[in-house]
Design a protein around this nucleic acid. Sequence first.
RNA 1: CGGGGCGUAGCGCAGUCUGGUAGCGCGCCAGUUUUGGGUACUGGAGGCCCCCGGUUCGAAUCCGGGCGCCCCGACCA
Length: 437
Amino acid sequence: MRLSAFFLPTLKETPTEAQIVSHRLMLRAGMIRQTSAGIYAWLPLGLRVLKKIEQIVREEQNRAGAQELLMPTIQSADLWRESGRYDDYGKEMLRITDRHDREMLFGPTNEEMITDIFRAFVRSYRQLPLNLYHIQWKFRDEIRPRFGVMRGREFLMKDAYSFDIDPAGARRSYQAMFLAYLRTFARMGLKAIPMRADTGPIGGDLSHEFIILAETGESGVFCQKEWLDLDVLADAPDYNEDLQPFFDKATGIYAATDEKHDAATCPIPADELVSARGIEVGHIFYFGTKYSKPMNAVVAGPNGDPVLVEMGSYGIGVSRLMGAIIEASHDDNGIIWPDSVAPFNVGLINLKPGDADSDRVSAELYDTLQAAGVDVLYDDRDERPGVKFADMDLIGVPWQLVVGPRGIKNGVVELKRRATGERVELPADAAIAKLTA
RNA sequence: CGGGGCGUAGCGCAGUCUGGUAGCGCGCCAGUUUUGGGUACUGGAGGCCCCCGGUUCGAAUCCGGGCGCCCCGACCA
């Protein structure tokens, strides 16, 4: 992509409404535009990152055996009356009436709808286990939306729903998602700590929140110091192995949100405990027959008798993750994207457009890298070098490749790593080799 | 939902108290200059001063009502 043609409305000044760094940087980097309280339009740069995050989530869900489908954003109130949640959910649910005065709602979650789909088609325990997920926009009419996409009213969520014939199977499904979540967040360069959590309105008896430690986090959390530099995935099992030992080990290291934590009964001595703030990026639940029972989701068991299915649900805040990643990875100059979610792999800076050599070398690098499958943002604008460096730092592209007359004269270009600031001068061929390795 | 605050050019703001030509910085456009970390100069474009009503010769400014947004607290991916 040539920057001269890319819609990238960066801001020099920070809009006053943005209080936390991820919100400020997303606005300044031209990634989002607020359209109402807690509702955002995703501009091209922001959408690129959102898609990258979404794709990692998708790959790890698929790897864990879940299958993607897509349910609508608008649901019928009748389904929610079946589960009893239409009245329970309260004002957070956006209720809508259509032209025939039918009661509809913009879905805040999809347990009812997926259960309805399940019961319509699944008849036998032999079709289980089953895990279905989608990545879809949700709406929760938050009392006070804030922090940009971290607490929006409309947000993109991956929600998965597992169906099993018995509690043992359901626990295995839960453990598979538990592992998938750890893998997912690790791929984004995040350390997410699973913490015992309240089940809230979703209900159930087993639940973990996955929390990124960050000063601006909304949740108070406590965890054993061991978590801080632990690579929990170091000996992670395959999905076809018994997941119980891994699960036991990971959940054996103490971590709890302040709702669950009680200093009086905490088994960990105070000097081994870390008190911190965190951002919740995922939440998983095992809730048994909470929905299958009122909605009569049954299958034939091995002996032919109907059995209520055991269910769990598993959510990842996809749009929130973008804010969380920025909170975890930025500096005074802007965002530092992990390679896995970066909107572009390489920012190519032509220091002197109009200079024949600079234009030629830049164009060659651009074409070669693109042909090798590297996503390049080519800054060919007629701007001062300082503007280009500042913009490229701001939007956080992992590698900057700098081409200018001075370097060309010496047969070199400059390669800069955004994360470390480390710069090396090297021949163009060597730069290409390094970036396509 | 309680408390606080804001709405004036794309962004950041001044002007409102004390009514009288709508301003500043950045950005944008044109030109000149400059060229290795947000350059300088000259010229220019851009405004339902949130909306409706009232007071007044005259309202961004005063009064009434509404809408929107932000911040702080109790709830949530």
